[in-house]
Computed example of a mutant assay.
Amino acid sequence: MSSRKQTLKPTEEALISEALAIEAEAAADAGALGYLARCMVQATMPHRKVEGTHFERKNGSFTLTMMAPADPGLPYGSVPRLLLAWLSTEAVRTRSREIELGDSMSAFMREIGLVPTGGRWGSITRLKNQTARLFACTVNAIYKEGGRTGILNRSVADRAVLWWDAKDPAQAAQWRSKVVLSEPFFNEILDRPVPVDQRALKALKQSPLALDTYAWLTYRASYMTKASTVPWEAIAGQFGSDYKLLRQFKAAFLTELRKVAAVYPAAEFDVSDKGLTVKPGQPHVQRKPSV
């Protein structure tokens, strides 16, 4: 065992340690039960900065389109994913569209698993920037099946007021920062939300692709009754439209898939040249009957 540990990279050791902790205690018992809106699991946000104000991803008959003002632009990366998970969890917990974000920036950052760091590329700047991008964007979901088409248009938030001081993130503001989720997006969250373990999200937070893959695998496990092979082209269309070559995406996806498997060992899948075969298995978090 000790010789194997010496060959592990620090990130791999951290993932394995987190996996052991997750296995030892159920998410609900650990106070780590979280939720995601289904539409944001079926297709996902950009991994990297996107030029322009329009972004699209497809998953079979489902197309997710995101649009945003030129300033601030489209959300991307891990931060808006962690934000959405926290907001969705609070919406399910409180059954309220109006959600308070805490009285200080650093306190909220700890809630979503970020360590406050300053500077141009620090987490404080990224959170402030990505929060504005997420709350300003509009999401369009289009379902096509046979001759039928369903179109849902929704903004993430009707209103957001952020009193945070980026220069002094630990300082409590006179008024609490809050966001009012749009009614359509709020209803989307409450309509069969996808349960996730927030400890897994925090363990995978360095990679937006790993976060997306984790959420997708546990979501599929919640409804699958037989094995299904998803071609690499389809997976790339859903997760990796910012890779120029399919082989580049495949290599990146398999790297992140190994990380996901470390924190979600019950995930059942096989990898082949054709694609990823996902098998019926145990969702990472069991859905509560009341949800």
Rank of each mutant, 00 (worst) to 15 (best):
S290P: 00
T229K: 14
R57W: 00
L101E: 02
K226R: 15
M224G: 00
S272F: 05
A221L: 08
S177M: 06
P265R: 00
A32I: 00
D191V: 01
R93C: 08
A172S: 03
L204V: 06
A85K: 03
V41D: 09
E145Y: 12
A19R: 09
A203M: 03
I189N: 06
A136R: 07
P72Q: 06
E256T: 09
Y264A: 06
L84A: 06
G150S: 11
E90C: 04
L152W: 04
P72S: 09
L101M: 07
R57N: 11
A132D: 15
R120A: 14
P169Y: 00
K274T: 12
A221F: 10
G60P: 04
A210C: 05
I16Q: 12
A30P: 08
V50S: 07
I189E: 09
S272Q: 09
L101T: 03
R176T: 14
R126N: 11
T138Q: 11
A141N: 07
P195K: 10
E56K: 11
R81Y: 14
A27P: 06
R57Y: 10
T149I: 10
A252K: 03
L209E: 03
D212Y: 13
A266S: 09
G281E: 13
E98H: 14
A19I: 06
P265E: 02
H47I: 02
D270C: 05
T117I: 01
W175N: 11
C39M: 05
W216A: 12
G275K: 14
R154N: 09
F186Y: 15
L101Q: 07
V196G: 13
S61W: 09
L245T: 09
R258N: 07
R126H: 12
R81L: 08
R176M: 11
S3H: 12
A227E: 13
K274V: 04
Q206H: 14
A170L: 07
D158P: 01
A37Y: 07
L190A: 08
W216E: 11
A203L: 07
A68R: 00
F62P: 03
N129W: 11
L181R: 06
P195Q: 08
E268K: 12
